[in-house]
Design a protein around this nucleic acid. Structure first.
Lengths: 246, 246
DNA sequence: CGCTAGATTGAGGTCAATCAACGGGTGTGG
DNA sequence: CCACACCCGTTGATTGACCTCAATCTAGCG
């Protein structure tokens, strides 16, 4: 309950809270907690019960499924502004996934039943929540497409392309996470990811350790999909090399 | 706009509309259309634009992604009560997936902007929509888990188990769709699915064409996951052979 | 009765996983 | 400051699960 005020400006920019009156935000903050967590910390684990809803204020979080053998599949890498366990708000079931801190993280922790009340009585907040969930759903579908009908190299190409598009204009990016994590997110083993990056090098893309350099901004456009395209500022303009991104 | 009244009772039982006042339902129906579609009909296709929101009243619909080579991955098999394109309501982007009729289908077609208005001004409807989307999200996660970290035979076992649990007590079920469709939903080729069913036969499960017969109700419990468990009436009782379904 | 679509079976191929060894940073402690 | 250990990533050789291709079978249906 400490110095929540520091985060007040930050919170107003979170997708879920955009356009929400100050008074409501204050009330939400008042009944929430801020939690700081170090790398490797476990936030929650599949099969547990919880009554909390989380919003990432800072850091990075790995959301994943783990099977009996310890193999894990990464579902999402949550960034500032993302929220966790929105499904829990609406149905009090067991947590379906695990969450672990990748980079030192600040979380806003809101009691689920309180959040449910806020949403119920504020139509703008409800609308925001629906939009956020719809967004997630679209990301899911895109991820699903990659995992189920793309080859390893297509998946790597898609991932790199997304990075460049998020990054704006530059044709240089740094891999934002460990290669192990990226590999898992892309549904492959680290060895396979490494080999695939070597293939990309051979095909003319400059990669030094974790820095990727494109010869041209369009080098990866073959790997575009609908979801990625919708985030690309060249999409729909004559500059886009494949307007009907398969 | 024809004889919508026939469907009035049906509509009240749809998850999205449970607990909604008659007056609102009437208004929704008044501004909707009922559409009948035969097998193989294409409802919409990835990359298109639409301003419509659909609810399945009858039939079966395949929701899938298709790549340039014609390979397809089935994301969901929509049943009566399910809705399609809820993401479209909240963000007017391109349709991310394709939908095709599997079994003769009756659809309730609602203009997206009207639906958006209804949700905005009716908190119960908004709450229902959130719950429905949260449900979908959990199903997604379960499906994702299967596709990314289970073997072919585990996926088949999981699918059969789900069938038996949905079906209630009986230890006999009939496969509800073509094997081709099931295979695609499980992320494998029909040949592989067929071979895997043969494996199950050898392991003591009786399978004749599309009828599956379990020696005991617990034969498939090894293939349970959290989401499946939450739909199992034995879960949490002493009768459940593996209480902490991996 | 033949046609067609769905399902099965067989043989062979392939892509990515596995297993194992190595390299190069980084941090720690002597 | 160096020696050692450790983690992450790379590289190589091999395996194996699933796919591919092609032939055959079956059942429904005109």
């Amino acid at each position: 309950m400490s110095n929540i005020s520091i985060y007040q400006s930050k919170i107003g920019k979170i997708p879920l809270f955009i356009g929400i009156e100050e008074a409501l935000l204050d009330s939400i903050l008042e009944h929430s907690r801020i939690v700081y967590l170090d790398k490797h910390a476990e936030i929650f684990s599949q099969g547990e019960r919880t009554t909390k809803f989380y919003i990432v204020l800072d850091g990075l979080i790995k959301l994943f499924k783990m099977d009996a053998n310890g193999a894990e599949a990464v579902l999402q890498i949550a960034k500032p502004g993302d929220n966790l366990l929105e499904t829990i708000i609406f149905k009090n079931s067991l947590i379906p996934i695990s969450a672990q801190v990748i980079e030192n993280t600040t979380l806003l922790v809101i009691p689920a039943d309180r959040m449910r009340q806020y949403i119920k009585h504020n139509e703008k907040l409800a609308a925001n929540m629906l939009e956020v969930m719809a967004d997630r759903s679209r990301q899911f579908i895109s991820h699903f497409e990659q995992l189920s009908l793309k080859s390893v190299s297509q998946r790597v190409g898609w991932f790199l392309l997304k990075l460049f598009i998020e990054n704006g204009k530059a044709n240089t990016v740094k891999l934002p996470y460990d290669k192990l994590l990226i590999a898992s997110y892309l549904g492959m083993k680290p060895e396979t990811f490494s080999r695939t990056l070597q293939d990309f090098k051979r095909r003319g893309i400059d990669i030094q350790k974790d820095v990727v350099n494109l010869p041209t901004v369009f080098s990866l456009c073959d790997y575009c999909d609908i979801e990625t395209a919708s985030n690309c500022n060249k999409h729909g303009t004559p500059a886009c090399p494949n307007p009907d991104c398969i």
